[in-house]
Design a protein around this nucleic acid. Structure first.
Lengths: 226, 226
DNA sequence: TTTAAAGTATGACAAATATCATATTTTAAA
DNA sequence: TTTAAAATATGATATTTGTCATACTTTAAA
C-alpha cells in the first residue's frame, strides 16, 4: 500500500492541510484503483460513501438531461477530489464521473473524511473554499449557457481546453474529446458542433488534424468567445 | 438593537447551530438594514466583508453578461444567508443582490463569521451543506439552460415560483416579477418571454391577469417543463 | 389631471440552431 | 485483411429564438 504522505497530488488539493498522523491514518484506510478510459467511477444517483483523490488522468462529470443527451458539467483532473459534494451533503451523487483517459484514483471512506472535518479546521476551510470556487464556476457557467451563442461557447471551451490541459508538440489539444463530447460540453447538437469547427477551420482560427484540434489564433478566438 | 436569540428566521439557516453565547456576540456586532424594493444590497465585484441574514423579503442575484443583459442566477428569500461564498473565498462578490420587495436584513461582519467557523463545528458543517446544496442547484440549473428549450424553461420557472413563493387568493403568483425579470431568469429575450406567456395563456395553462400570472394547469405545465 | 416614460403585447423578419438524410472516413471486431 | 460499426462531415430543411418596429396599457412624475 502506497503512502499518502509521499503522494505529490495531495499537495494540490484540500488534503494538503492534513497532518502526518492524519495522512498515515488515511493511507491505512484508502483503496487505490486503476480505471480504464471510458469506465465509470460512479453514476448519477449512486451513493458514494467517500471521496476519490485523482492521482492521474482526467474524467468528465456528466448529467443525463430529459431529452436523453449527456451534458458534461465539468472536467476534473489529477490533484483534484471527486465526490466531495455528495459526501458532505450525505446525498446520492448528482453527476456521473467517467474516465476520459486511463486513471489512477484513491478512494477515502466517508467516515474518515468526516473525522478530519471535526479534527482539522484548516482542512474544513480548504474544502469549503474549494466548493465555493466550484459554486462560482457553476454560476458563471450557467450564465454562459443562458446568454452566449453556441459559437461563443465553442470558442470559450477550446481556449479552456488548451489552458487547462495543454497542447501536444503539433499544437493539438492534449485532451482529446470526441465531437459528441465537445458538443456535450457546450450544450449543442453534435452536428452543430462539427459545423462550427469546420467554419473556424476555414476561417483559420483553428486547424483540424484528423480528429485532433489545434488552436491557430488565440486572440481572435478570445474575441469571438465574448 | 434587537436580539438574534429571538429572531425566528435564524432557525431556517446555518445560524441555528450557534450557541446562546455566540448569538449574544452576534447581536452585539450585527447591523440591521431596511432595503427598499429595487435597491442594491451589493454589487458584482464589490468586496462584501460579511454576510447578510435575510429577515424579510426576497432578492434576486444577478450577473451582467457580456451582451449587456442581466441574468438572474437565483432568488434568495427570508431565512437564507447572502454573501456566504465571497466571505468564505475572501473574494469580491460574483453576483449582485437586488431587492425584489422591501427587505429587512442583518449584516454580520466577516471576522465574526470566521470565528464561528473555528469555534463551532456544527455551524461549519451547516454552512458547508448549504453551499453544497447551492452547488447541486447551480449544476442542475446549468444543465437546464444547456439542454432545455425556452418554453420548457419558462414552464419550469413558473412552477418554481409558485412552489417557492406561493400564490395569492386569486391564484396569481405572490412574487411578482416583471416580464423582463422573468426573461432574465429563463435566459431569453423579453419579447420571447412575453410571446410564450401569451401562448400558454391561449392554451389555458396559465391566466394573465394584468401583469400578474396565475397557473391554471399544473400537470400540463409540468409535462411541458420536461 | 395631464403627460411622459416604462412596461406589455404583437407582427414581420432575420439569424441561430436542430433535425434528418447521406456521404466519407476512421476504428475496431471478425 | 476484410468488414461492420462508429465517428466525422456536409447539405437540405424545419424549428426556435432574437431583433426591430410599432401599438397599446399601465405607472409615475409634473
Amino acid at each position: 500500500m502506497s503512502k499518502c504522505e509521499q503522494c505529490i497530488v495531495r499537495q494540490f488539493s484540500s488534503l494538503k492541510a492534513l497532518s502526518k498522523d492524519e495522512l498515515l491514518k488515511m493511507a491505512d484506510c484508502k483503496t487505490s484503483y486503476t480505471i480504464k478510459k471510458g469506465e465509470t467511477i460512479f453514476e448519477e444517483g449512486e451513493i458514494t460513501n467517500g471521496i476519490y483523490c485523482i492521482k492521474d488522468g482526467v474524467c468528465k462529470m456528466t448529467k443525463l438531461s430529459a431529452n436523453g443527451k449527456d451534458q458534461i458539467v465539468k472536467l476534473v483532473k489529477s490533484g483534484e477530489l471527486l465526490g466531495q459534494r455528495s459526501t458532505i451533503s450525505e446525498e446520492p451523487a448528482n453527476l456521473s464521473a467517467v474516465a476520459l483517459e486511463d486513471m489512477e484514483v484513491c478512494f477515502i471512506p466517508k467516515t474518515e473524511i468526516l473525522q478530519f472535518f471535526t479534527q482539522n479546521n484548516q482542512f474544513s476551510m480548504n474544502v469549503m473554499k474549494t466548493i465555493c470556487g466550484d459554486l462560482k464556476e457553476a454560476d458563471d457557467h450557467m450564465v454562459s449557457m443562458a446568454q452566449k451563442s453556441v459559437k461563443e461557447r465553442l470558442a470559450e471551451t477550446l481556449l479552456y481546453l488548451e489552458d487547462t490541459f495543454g497542447k501536444n508538440d503539433d499544437n493539438t489539444l492534449k485532451l482529446q474529446l470526441s465531437r459528441e463530447e465537445l458538443a456535450g460540453m457546450i450544450g449543442t447538437a453534435t452536428e452543430s458542433c462539427i459545423r462550427l469547427l469546420s467554419e473556424l477551420n476555414k476561417a483559420g482560427l483553428i486547424e483540424l488534424i484528423g480528429k485532433k484540434i489545434a488552436i491557430k489564433d488565440r486572440n481572435k478566438l478570445r474575441r469571438m468567445s465574448e
